[in-house]
Design a protein around this nucleic acid. Structure first.
Lengths: 338, 338
DNA sequence: CTCATTTTATAAACCGGTTTATCGCTACAC
DNA sequence: GTGTAGCGATAAACCGGTTTATAAAATGAG
């Protein structure tokens, strides 16, 4: 039951190793008859190339990597990552390139993993998520000269190509939607402050609010968890002058807010409008269904994977924006209470 | 910026390749002084062993694989997988062993992936999920003699060791809980019928119901999606004699059911009790909070990974049960309406 | 002091592919 | 008939490690 090698094939076909290699890779150097004979024998023996031998010989790993730097518990509840992964897979699977996945607990460990993967020739490149301000990973990646693509940006990427979505525009749309419904006191419950895209959204939020001449808004930062979403919502609704609309940075916190509102006897959307970010089945299932910003996360993944493949081939890759995010209005937003 | 090899180290230290190998692997054959010198130089050069070269030389891949055979869209909404993965990672990361992840669309493709991975020496073993009746993967794995561990069972595993949870006992507890609250018409909204654990739960459900002398129950099979959960719930609640309690096979469908109940003006738990399966933050966030069966999914992953490592070392591994599933009663279950 | 043993180190083979250099042979142009 | 391409195939080097066989040097026993 030993796994067959090209030497086994060569013996069986009565030719040399080299001839077998040419035949199996479809390159010139063998006659058509010999090629067919070799292919047949390889098929019979159930041969598959040893990725280790290939990698050693041509220096390519034929694998890509993704490190996810969030607490494992949070992960399972963020549809974002699995959607991203499935987008990545849709491209890589076609090339029979596996994705190496490892979760990490902090950035230092994450950089170690990158270094090790690349030094060990386990991957040809990586996709990076959760871009931070002054992100130390950028310098590390650049120093290693490892092909990489960032999900996020387009600023502060240190010259590394990225796949970005126009969060500022999306936030603008949300605020205008709410203002159009008569809301004046709009709050924003954001993700972690050190993430670049959190700041991008916050700035767009503040800008649009001020453009519209609305009172100074409140922004609260969280760790994306449902617990913090609930806590923050409770605190906001307990104010003397509570907001009439809240924009959340993911779906889980918005769902938690619905629960808190119900607990407070505040009906949605009559007395409070709620907006989530990144659509998921969850947003459609809860009652009232959540108004959200819908982005095509799967597309983010497939675009990034395609760019990474190009980079690994030695070609250039340029940052790309994704299809624009859409505001999907559902039952959780309505006219501001009088 | 070429990645350094042991030859570079050997040159720098003025010794042979072999000496470097001994030094780096902590085996006898070099003096303590030489070993230190070599280690220092390796550190300075930022050397890491080429996994390809190692794999080629000792025949080990130092990687494990997981194929997820569900539609990508469903994946993002199932906390199960990310939790399982994080459990697996918690063991593998410690050994610096990456996890190869690939999603597939059908079982044939999945078996191809296993075959290729193993033939290409990309993995030393795999973890299999979603055990089905007459699962063709079992024969394939056994024929390849590839180390593997199944999440599920303990029946129909074809002799492959597994990590299983006592679903029958859990289902028994749920039904008794509901019966204790006075419920007689209890329905079960299950996952796909061809999964072994779905049948296990269905049998336990039917058995317990009949033991308690309750009327013949209804079981409906779905694809786990929120949409089907909602559709089925709608149909059940439209019956002339609707169930007063419904047990779902995951959390998403239970959440969908809460929405449908609200839509129908049926209050939970006063007129309908709802039970979910596998706890997640979601179950705590919705209103009313969902009564669920809680299993330690992360533990499933870590146990499976440990067993797989043993198998790959050539040791035997025996199937193991996990810590028992717990019924967590929350606000979504209450006394049956009169 | 000699001989046996252990320690330290090296050269070379090996893992399974890819690739380069080489060679014999046929086909073709001149 | 000679020179030159071009085809089909092979031998051998190479990728970066591990491991075996072997040799030289240091150590110990008698």
């Amino acid at each position: 039951m030993r796994r067959p090698t090209i030497v086994d094939i060569a013996k069986a076909a009565g030719v040399s190793k080299g001839a077998v290699s040419y035949a199996l890779n479809g390159r010139p150097g063998v006659s058509e008859a010999t090629r067919q004979r070799i292919l047949d024998i390889a098929g019979q023996l159930g041969w598959a190339p040893s990725s280790a031998a290939r990698a050693l010989s041509d220096g390519r790993a034929d694998a890509m990597g993704l490190v996810v730097d969030r607490p494992a518990a949070v992960l399972g509840n963020e549809p974002f990552f699995m959607q991203l992964i499935s987008g990545i897979q849709s491209v890589l699977s076609g090339e029979a390139i596996p994705l190496l996945l490892q979760s990490s607990t902090d950035r230092e460990l994450e950089m170690d993993i990158y270094r090790r993967w690349y030094a060990e020739r386990r991957v040809d490149g990586v996709i990076m998520v959760d871009l931070r301000h002054d992100d130390p990973r950028l310098a590390a990646i650049n120093a290693m000269r490892m092909p990489a693509v960032i999900i996020g940006g387009p600023y502060e990427t240190g010259g590394i190509p990225c796949v970005w979505s126009n969060d500022a525009k999306a936030m603008h749309d949300v605020v205008r939607h709410l203002a159009g419904l008569g809301h004046e006191y709009i709050a924003r419950v954001a993700g972690p402050e050190n993430l670049v895209h959190t700041t991008t959204r916050s700035e767009a939020f503040a800008e649009t609010v001020s453009e519209l001449g609305l009172p100074d808004p409140e922004i609260v930062y969280t760790d994306y968890s449902g617990e913090q979403g609930a806590t923050v919502t409770r605190s906001l609704l307990s104010r003397e002058k509570p907001p009439t609309a809240i924009i959340f940075d993911n779906d889980l916190m918005a769902v938690a807010a619905l629960g808190v509102a119900q607990e407070f006897g505040i009906s949605v959307p009559e007395r409070l409008s709620v907006v989530a970010w990144d659509d998921s089945p969850l947003c459609r299932l809860v009652h009232p269904a959540l108004t959200t910003i819908t982005r095509d996360i799967v597309e983010h993944g497939s675009t990034a994977a395609t760019m990474l493949m190009d980079l690994a081939e030695g070609e250039e890759a340029h940052s790309r924006g994704t299809s624009p995010a859409q505001l999907v209005t559902r039952a959780s937003t309505g006219p501001a209470p009088r």
